[in-house]
């Protein structure tokens, strides 16, 4: 009952917004270039879909996000585990990490083009940087925050350091690591759109910039909404994996 009410409330606002938006456009209050009607956006989106281009663009963006994320997180995870577990390794790497971390991935664009030219390599490099730091910082925090009592209990039961690392520290740190991955994939998704605007000639980011050249506002908005839906889908997917793997952790207070 309450759920039905929540759904009604949740759809009311977007629906009214759409109606208002459509009304303003139909009344001719604004030019179609400044604000195309929602119906025009939908028609444009269907046209884009049927041409097959939408699928190519979406897959292009998703592939870049996946490769960049795997590269960035794949490097951050082992480094984070080492930095978290060993104060010595931490001392070696932390100053460098602290200096590089605040640099937004976007600031790497010029150097990435100089290093990798145009095309997919600079895009994947930028996405990897975007995913790297959140995963790194959270992995370090996760390993450092493992409750000492688990380590004691494991040692008491006869575990040596390698068993403790694999079976205690690693699983105890997973809630942190997953939180970092979720932030990382969010950043990767932002960076992919930006990098497609500068370095490649397909993908959702490229397509909305291309549409701007022709003043196709309806296609720009169709692209933006596609980006939004794709981001939402990725987040829902991550959340589902998260909830399954961390089912032992759900609702725990510590």
């Amino acid at each position: 009952m309450f759920q039905v009410r929540a759904i009604v409330r949740g759809t009311a606002v977007p629906l009214l917004t759409l109606l208002l938006w459509e009304g303003i456009c139909r009344a001719g209050l604004v030019s179609a270039i400044i604000l195309p009607a929602p119906s025009a956006v939908v028609l444009r989106w269907i046209e884009w879909l049927l041409s097959g281009e939408l699928l190519v663009d979406t897959l292009g963006s998703l592939t870049r996000v996946s490769l960049g994320f795997l590269l960035g997180a794949g490097l951050a995870l082992p480094l984070g585990l080492f930095m978290g577990a060993s104060p010595k390794v931490y001392d070696y790497f932390n100053p460098l990490v602290q200096v590089l971390r605040p640099i937004p991935p976007i600031a790497w664009i010029p150097m990435s083009i100089l290093w990798f030219g145009l095309g997919n390599p600079p895009a994947i490099f930028l996405i990897a940087i975007g995913a790297f730091f959140p995963v790194l910082m959270n992995t370090i925090a996760g390993v450092r925050n493992v409750d000492g009592i688990y380590l004691r209990a494991a040692r008491n039961l006869g575990a040596g350091s390698s068993v403790i690392f694999r079976r205690v520290i690693l699983p105890a740190a997973t809630p942190y690591i997953f939180a970092g991955m979720r932030i990382g994939i969010g950043t990767a998704f932002i960076v992919v759109i930006v990098s497609e605007m500068i370095a490649v000639n397909n993908g959702l980011g490229y397509r909305i910039l291309e549409a701007r050249e022709y003043m196709w506002s309806d296609k720009i908005i169709a692209g933006m909404i596609t980006i939004g839906l794709l981001g939402l889908a990725i987040d829902i997917g991550m959340n589902a994996i998260n909830n399954h793997l961390l089912r032992w952790h759900r609702g725990m207070d510590s």
Partner: peptide
């Protein structure tokens, strides 16, 4: 073998 007040079971 130690039994802790906080149980110290591995929650995962």
């Amino acid at each position: 073998g130690v039994v802790f007040q906080e149980y110290a079971l591995f929650p995962w």
